[in-house]
Design a protein around this nucleic acid. Sequence first.
DNA 1: GTGGTCTAGACCACC
DNA 2: GTGGTCTAGACCACA
Lengths: 123, 123, 123, 123
Amino acid sequence: MEFRENEAIYLQIAAYVAEHIVLRKWAVDQKIPSVRELAVELQVNPNTVVRAYEFLQNKGVIMNKRGIGFFMAVDAELKIKEYSKERFLGNELPEFFKNIYLLEISIKEIEERFEKFKAEHYR
Amino acid sequence: MEFRENEAIYLQIAAYVAEHIVLRKWAVDQKIPSVRELAVELQVNPNTVVRAYEFLQNKGVIMNKRGIGFFMAVDAELKIKEYSKERFLGNELPEFFKNIYLLEISIKEIEERFEKFKAEHYR
Amino acid sequence: MEFRENEAIYLQIAAYVAEHIVLRKWAVDQKIPSVRELAVELQVNPNTVVRAYEFLQNKGVIMNKRGIGFFMAVDAELKIKEYSKERFLGNELPEFFKNIYLLEISIKEIEERFEKFKAEHYR
Amino acid sequence: MEFRENEAIYLQIAAYVAEHIVLRKWAVDQKIPSVRELAVELQVNPNTVVRAYEFLQNKGVIMNKRGIGFFMAVDAELKIKEYSKERFLGNELPEFFKNIYLLEISIKEIEERFEKFKAEHYR
DNA sequence: GTGGTCTAGACCACC
DNA sequence: GTGGTCTAGACCACA
């Protein structure tokens, strides 16, 4: 996995895990990869994964069973949407509006690009 | 002015200045506020304003006349739109699309919020 | 049984066993439940029960008769009180005092809560 | 400062900071020691202090002004009491009651010890 | 095997 | 100067 430069890696990992949960890519038995597994897979230091998991645990998305590993919370998806939505509406959306206003981009153009985006990423 | 947590203050100041230029709020004589004035107005350390001005100068948006102050470039608006558009299309838009997809927010809802936003901010 | 988060499960199990001994809930023939029985009852890994029993054996509270099982020591209750009291006076009580001082909880309130607690747990 | 063995150092540091705030030992200008200062003072790795400060920030007790340092929240004391009380009533108090019941210690004895404790620690 | 913690040391952006 | 992040490596308790 490649990481963007402008955001902390551990947050990108948290987002990666959250996305996997929401898209049900790991839904088999509710258990998520161990810290070490994910660290190897993503090629980062285990401590960085630990920080990501701590973050998600604080948000109530995942829970730890001692000595066994991390598990999705029963309402993981809801929790993810809660904190994501809060952040999105509070931070990103106003920024987005300011940009399209100043750049004179129409909602219609946004919509077209969105359709294209979906076609490429979420078939 | 309140600053968002997730973005450097100097970048938010640069955006603030850029917005004022595009919306012609200071267009009287092409001169923009001095570092000190703006620092007092925004309640930040003057160094932070300096960094914002340096940033805009690098982008070709403003120019420094020694001993006098900073002035808008003749094509300031164009320059602003150039670098804004690049960043917007490359970084923010994909992030935005991913978010509204995962959060299940429709373009229609975005449009409604945008109308409200415009009414509040750009009357 | 639910376990507190801030204490090792095996120690909570040891406390659970000690409590049963002191309150004479298993006093029939001095034999205590087998590792497997208790593991099933408490829904934990048998190894965890083993650790709890080892802990109590070290304290002289229970003894192992090979092939038969674990039995209470004749002075089990005394032993329990010894090590409990030591830990209680040395660690928990100072911590407890610091807390009620900082949280401004009166001894009177503690007393009331204690009466309620006894009524609920030790009828 | 000496740290107890049975609790994570960073939590003990968080408790140390919280205690200083509640007892108004740093109330001069609301600013608390920098990460590096406190690390030197307590003889721990700066990262450990960082974890303590992150913990307190999550609880809303302290806030960061970028590039300047950490400051007490206006309602720091309230926040501290909130999360402390929650933990105390949920975890420590039941444990405490179980102990004094099994050890047959009276509330009266507790009260006497508490008076002695206060005399020694909080003149 | 699991996660939790701590140290040491580095680099960075920011004010 | 401030905090934020990341790596490397170690040790530990726990299941």
